[in-house]
Amino acid sequence: MLPLELRDLCFAINGNTIIDRISVQIEDGPRTIILGPNGAGKSVLMRLCHGLLKPTSGTVAWTGRRPNRRSGGQAMVFQRPVMLRRSALRNVMYGLKLAGVSRTECELRAHDVLDAVGLSHVAHHPARVLSGGEQQRLALARAWALGPEVLFLDEPTANLDPGAAREIESIIGAIHASGAKIIMTTHNLGQARRLGDEILFINQGRLTERSSADRFFREPASAEATAFLRGELP
């Protein structure tokens, strides 16, 4: 389904412009980090891409071949994982069932993916009593099980302690290695350095800069990005 093409994308709510004429084409392959200060519009941009929000004007288009139902498509992991009131295994199976996967395969895939994120031992525990880090790993497992072509991650480690955050990062790496395109927002510079291949820098709803991670951190092109890297923006 990639590349993802945004054309003159705008989003406003109650007259406040949140996303302001963003045009960009996101290709398959590199891990794309959407970086920017608080309130820049990163999360809204991600929801527009994922289809949870409708643009006020402009378009979001997947210009590649259509994904099939069994695998491919897109998935998203939120800052706060939403755990359904059932076991960890059933949480993963819930998403698979909605994707139209047969019951037996649901269960096989769910076990595999729980194993991959290191949660096999709590597969039958109620999801809501897991720790914050475990819940986020479960959310990743739920998304990963769908075999998405694109995985959106909205500040996936913002509420976690550093140890748990590292585990999440390594799972994200594994998901990328398995062939999924990663598009992730963060305001954590260290994480952006560790996980990012390319950076989209957003400030006040505008795409200010796009470059490879190396170049962005070495010599940012815009004054805003320079200020952000120095920690002068919130």
């Binding site: 949870l52 998935a75 939403v82 909605l98 739920r142």
Partner: peptide, 22 residues
């Protein structure tokens, strides 16, 4: 739940029954 369920592709009917159970 809304964003998560919509992200997973739940239709209204599925969402309603999920809420009833949860």
């Amino acid at each position: 739940y809304e964003e998560q369920l919509r992200s997973l592709g739940a239709k209204r009917l599925t969402a309603a029954s999920t809420l009833l159970w949860d």
